[in-house]
């Protein structure tokens, strides 16, 4: 009787060391996964990627502008003021390059404001050039117009996808139990694009 009770603990200790320890490590590795660390990393990466897409599309718009301005100069020299506004708004917008780590709500708002300005200036330009019927038959201008319009659509899609990614990410770090430790792993809530009042009021880029 005494032998068994002495023997049993040593066996269990042995068993534990041989098989249970690695088992526990395996289980804890899997639970860490289900606790969502990897999931949070993935969602965080998606946000970064979507932000890169947003920037690409804004850059694409900025890249179209010099060509557009050059084309218009030949036709609409009187509209220098509007053209200058566009060029200036572009310079301001492109000077703001935000890394995904710097995406605080204030920064994002500034970024959005600069891009919104550019959008407004472009919209005014497009209204002004309506006065020049020659442009309507200029193939170069027509293609730029189509590209610009497409870029605006892409920007809105990229923003929409970014917001969706942020929403999923924010929801994932704020759910229980992750909310208790997400912060200590460095996962913080991210900012959204807000629907712009000005965007709705800005002259519609109608081609």
């Amino acid at each position: 009787m005494q032998i068994t009770s002495n023997y049993f603990p040593t066996l269990s200790n042995n068993l534990f060391r041989k098989f249970m320890l690695p088992f526990f490590i395996a289980v804890s590795a899997l639970t860490l996964q289900s606790c969502g660390y990897n999931d949070m990393v993935e969602k965080d990466e998606t946000v970064s990627q979507k932000w890169a897409d947003v920037q690409t599309q804004y850059q694409r718009r900025a890249d179209l502008i010099p060509n557009l301005v050059n084309t218009l100069k030949g036709f609409a020299e009187q509209e220098k003021e509007v053209l200058t506004q566009v060029v200036e708004a572009r310079a301001k917008a492109t000077s703001m390059n935000l890394n995904v780590e710097d995406l605080t709500p204030e920064n994002l708002q500034k970024f959005q404001a600069a891009q919104g300005n550019l959008r407004g200036a472009l919209g005014r330009l497009m209204v002004v050039v309506e006065k020049y019927p020659d442009l309507k038959s200029n193939q170069n201008f027509l293609e730029l117009q189509a590209q610009l319009e497409g870029t605006e659509n892409r920007i809105s899609v990229a923003r929409q996808k970014f917001n969706t990614a942020v929403q999923e990410y924010n929801a994932s770090i704020r759910k229980f139990p992750r909310v208790m430790y997400a912060g200590s792993f460095g996962f913080e809530k991210r900012a959204y694009f807000e629907a712009e009042e000005t965007a709705k009021e800005a002259p519609k880029v109608e081609f």
Binding site: L142, E143, Q145, A146, Q147, E149, G150, T151
Partner: peptide
């Protein structure tokens, strides 16, 4: 099918 082509 770039936008300009789609437009055309």
């Amino acid at each position: 099918i770039p936008d300009a082509i789609a437009k055309r």
